[in-house]
Each structure stands twice: as C-alpha cells, then as structure tokens.
Amino acid sequence: MVEIIILLILLLLGYVFGRMAEKRHYRSIIQREKLYRDVILIASKHPPPELIDQQSILMTGSVVVSVDYFKRFIAGLRNLFGGRVSSYETLLDRARREAILRLKEQAFRKGSRMLVNIKLETASISKGRKNTIGSVEILAYATAFYPTQIP
C-alpha cells in the first residue's frame, strides 16, 4: 500500500514539475532561436569560398538532460504496446535544440556568423533501472569562422 502511494506521489511530482520545466524550456528555446537567427549553420564539410580570409576555431555546445519520473513511467507502458514514445521525443528534441543554441551563443560572442560542418552526437550517460534511459548527453560541435578584425 505504502509503495503504491509513493509511486503515485513520484508520478505526480514528475508530471507537474516535468511539464512546467518543459513549457518553460520551450519558451526560452523559441525566444533564443529568434535572437540567434543571424548565425548560419552549415552541415556541409566544404566551407563557402567567401570565408577564405577568415579565422576559424572549433566550438562545442553540450547539454545533459534527464527524463522525469512520469515520462519514464509512460515510456515503460509504451514498451508493452509499442509505437511512438512521444515523451522521449520531446526530451531529445529539446536537448538537441538547446545544444545547438549553446553552440550558436558561443560563436556569436566570438563575432562569428557562420558555423560549418556541424556534427551532432547523442550519448546516454547513465542507464536507469532495467536499462531504461536515465540521462542523455547531446553534443553539437562545428567550426566557427570569424573575421580577423573583431577582437
């Protein structure tokens, strides 16, 4: 009986705080994406020729996120029926956008407006119970080009 109550409390906490955090995070992501729209990301490994007299430097942006208790529970149920696990989809989407934003912010501060050859990588840092995903690291890295004049 006590166990069921604890489980329900954990689920409730996860649901309430997880949802709040997610909403807040999405708001901040959308706002910052507008702010850094000038910084262009290119996935190609050949930089455009106009960058020929610019300096370049390797930059990284990373984030480690954890899934909340409610989402993990829902994902566990999903395992029974199969299908899309949308609770994990939004988590990874958020993390990836956050990592790219951090990369852009760093480049912006350096005076760079163009990032070339962006690579994204996902690694699960710690496994939860029964080998479910506990926390995930997303790493984004790219070469930033910046004009020599700007200090």
Binding site: G14, F17, A21, V64, V65, S66, Y69, S135, E137
Partner: peptide, 11 residues
C-alpha cells in the same frame, strides 16, 4: 530523475 530537467553538474 524524478523532476526531469537539465543536469548542470554533468554538463
């Protein structure tokens, strides 16, 4: 792991 969110320490 209960509340979800970024793990700043790990980052």
């Amino acid at each position: 792991n209960v509340f979800g969110g970024e793990l700043k320490g790990y980052t």
